[in-house]
Design a protein around this nucleic acid. Structure first.
Lengths: 136, 136
DNA sequence: GCACAAATGCAATACGATTGCATCGTCGAT
DNA sequence: ATCGACGATGCAATCGTATTGCATTTGTGC
């Protein structure tokens, strides 16, 4: 069934790609290239790198820069068309457990930019302590 | 008069620091270490690096990661206390002129995080075409 | 002027991102 | 089934920014 999802998006379902997709679906957190490499080893970094870039281009995942500027990838929601407004949701980066979570449901209310500014993409990261670590 | 501002924040007003502060005040755009180095040359990168880190810690500037994950620094507004809500304003990164602008006035409306998430800092970057480049 | 601490400058390192290139595998055409 | 082309993979090398170590210089208080 994973195959189908990839084929739908014009991606040839190779072994590595299926494993990557599976990983994304099993864990909602956004992951960096390094993290992905650790979890899927043994796999070549470069292959993963290119897989992620391809997934991003094809709209399977979207990238955000975490609070350290490191690229992390998260699965797109079904309804996501990777448009500007689709990316206007919050990514939460926990300083305790270091995990970055894609909060699809937390949309940023409309941003009123000054005259002349044309938005095309967004990167919203909030740093703090996540629900699991705060104990609240 | 620049001296005073630094002293107020417990920063010894050295030559380099004054030049850096002057640069920030003369141009509202957020700048990276490299950009700063180019404009202020000849100055040593490391000194600038440490100056920026210190300015950040003392609340003179705040840092954002632009859409490429590169750290850019922008002058804090007078009212800024570098709290979470102070950082909930938009930074606009223009893909045309490559400049990142700190839109102090564009505050993100309150973000409703799910139960348990404790926000402490934020990084909001919107990419697109800025007012000067769009011609609108 | 002296002693100490801060600031500076240069070199070296760390590390994520990215590319070049050779090899391998898959798939359609013959 | 075989050939040829193209996509996918793996390994090594490179790039760019961030960061640290250490020696030297500068500034300040005594």
């Amino acid at each position: 069934m994973l195959d189908v999802e990839l084929v739908k998006k014009e991606i040839r379902p190779t072994a590595v790609r299926l494993r990557v997709l599976e990983q994304f679906q099993s864990d909602p957190a956004a992951v960096s290239l390094n993290e992905l490499e650790e979890r899927l080893q043994p796999v070549d970094r470069t292959t993963l790198f290119r897989t992620l870039k391809m997934f991003e281009k094809k709209g399977v995942v979207h990238a955000v820069h975490d609070e350290n500027g490191i690229i992390k990838y998260a699965l797109c929601a079904d309804s996501c068309r990777c448009s500007y407004s689709d990316h206007l949701h919050v990514h939460f980066s926990c300083k305790r457990c270091k995990k970055t979570t894609c909060l699809h449901d937390v949309q940023i209310p409309e941003v009123m930019l000054p005259q002349g500014y044309v938005p095309q993409d967004a990167n919203v990261v909030i740093k703090g302590v996540c629900n699991l670590c705060s104990g609240l």
